[in-house]
Design a protein around this nucleic acid. Sequence first.
DNA 1: GTTCATGACAACCAAACAGTTATATAACCA
DNA 2: TGGTTATATAACTGTTTGGTTGTCATGAAC
Lengths: 122, 122
Amino acid sequence: MNAPPSSDPLDALFAALADPTRRAILARLAEGEATVAELAAPFAMSQPAVSKHLKVLERAGLVTAGVDGQRRPRRMNAAPLAEAADAIERYRQIWERNYRRLDVLLEEMKAVEQQSRKGREI
Amino acid sequence: MNAPPSSDPLDALFAALADPTRRAILARLAEGEATVAELAAPFAMSQPAVSKHLKVLERAGLVTAGVDGQRRPRRMNAAPLAEAADAIERYRQIWERNYRRLDVLLEEMKAVEQQSRKGREI
DNA sequence: GTTCATGACAACCAAACAGTTATATAACCA
DNA sequence: TGGTTATATAACTGTTTGGTTGTCATGAAC
């Protein structure tokens, strides 16, 4: 009956995307699965550091780990990206609705202005 | 010639979106401009805390401050949201392209399977 | 069975974050 | 002028983050 401290999944999702290393890892995994070592190679950073980043991405649901002998290949899961895009789109749409309303208001003001101009012209 | 430590604007953008308080503030501002006090009201949090959140949103380009006497009304700027949505869409598209390629591969394997089945049937 | 390779895990550290209270600034109002 | 309101700024604090090194577990290969 009482959601503890909430902890919206969007928190973890956007936080995961807020780091350039993690975005690069994600871009790499969008191309296809890869091992930790492969993912770590491009970065001037230790393997445990990359593993930590992977854990963040996993907590956000963007990455899953498989098992293949001693490797643990990671693959990307795109579903949460849709969640994020939806959330962003919601803000944008509310904003646009109200922006449009402002536009209409400005149109109306302009129309009134025209009217009063005509009045003076007569 | 030497980009300092990079600091991608997407960092600030996604980081700004990664906090539920800030998302709520943004949702409120999507409806129209509001003062700091108005924005702070719904939260069990001091006014300086909200001002800090606003500063984060401003650094991300999502919010701007106006001047009206002693108030400093905030309004939302939707443009960076499009940036974020684009970035997300890029990941999704790369992923989809490769996912589709995997689908084709599976189709081909299934076809081969059918072939060999036919072979045995003869 | 050693030995090598992959990767996880723990302990540690510095810097950044998210909140607090207290204080300053600046505009309005009487 | 002095008081009140709106907001910013500063100083402090506990927690989180992003990295390090060192060690351990597991599976592969000789």
